[in-house]
């Protein structure tokens, strides 16, 4: 539609939104948010005192990164949904990619700097990616972020080495494996504790690497899955089938 109409509509919608949002007084909460108890790790009511980094032990939820405690702990089902979304877009891309590219993308011959640099940087990227998803419960990061970093490493390989080709089947199996194991762990949780995605491993001390029960394991699986998924999408974009 013409720019004038578009601008007009947007201005109208904008005015409407701003009016209502300022009237709604977003700064004033009418109710205590549910995250209050999540921050205190006291949703089940079993933790009267504050959570202390490096000291509190055996809590209902063991992650020092509070966002992670929500993503993979309190609201883990949404994360399963998220995994399925990424899986879905990888499938979708795979399903129509053969209609778009029927030959491989011609890559420019990479420069010497790129080739050598990639060789040095790629292992670092790998390590960093693994660090990010294995420390998701301790510092900002997690499976999705770590997996994306791994995928960037794969992209670097594609750019720097013209003959590089991702092993399609291996990565698809990794994808499937990550997802299936996630669900299986959830079902084991159901058998062990009565509800899907129940955290049945010990929670340890908040702040240590081996803590937070199931969370590091789940994030590991997610990291592998996301990395292989995005790598697969990259592969499709480069024209492999």
């Amino acid at each position: 539609m013409s720019r004038l109409w578009a601008a007009g509509i947007v201005v109208l919608i904008g005015l409407f939104l701003f009016l209502f949002l300022s009237d709604a007084q977003l700064g004033e909460r009418q109710q205590v948010p549910v995250s209050e108890k999540m921050v205190q790790k006291n949703v089940l009511g079993t933790n009267p005192g504050p959570v202390i980094f490096g000291q509190s032990e055996g809590l209902e939820e063991g992650s020092a990164n509070l966002v992670t405690s929500i993503v993979v702990g309190y609201r883990a089902l949404d994360t399963l949904g998220e995994i399925m979304v990424l899986f879905l877009s990888a499938l979708g891309v795979g399903a129509i990619a053969h209609l778009v590219w029927n030959q491989k993308l011609q890559k420019e011959a990479p420069s010497f700097i790129l080739k050598t640099g990639a060789g040095i940087v790629f292992p670092m990227i790998l390590v960093f990616g693994v660090y990010v998803f294995s420390h998701g419960h301790l510092s900002p990061g997690g499976g999705f972020q770590g997996g994306s970093i791994l995928a960037i490493g794969i992209l670097l390989l594609y750019i720097a080495f013209p003959t590089f080709e991702l092993n399609r089947v291996l990565f698809q199996r990794l994808e499937g494996f990550g997802g299936v194991t996630f669900v299986v762990l959830g079902v084991i949780g159901a058998l062990a504790g009565g509800a899907f995605l129940f955290n049945f491993l010990p929670n340890g001390v908040v702040g240590q690497l081996f803590s937070a029960g199931l969370i590091p394991i789940l994030y590991l699986l997610i990291g592998l899955k996301v990395g292989s998924e995005l790598g697969g999408i990259l592969r499709n974009l480069y024209g492999g089938e």
Partner: peptide, 12 residues
């Protein structure tokens, strides 16, 4: 930032 660390160790 909502992360328990050495610098900000208490959840309160």
């Amino acid at each position: 930032a909502p992360i328990l660390t050495d610098t900000y160790p208490l959840s309160v």
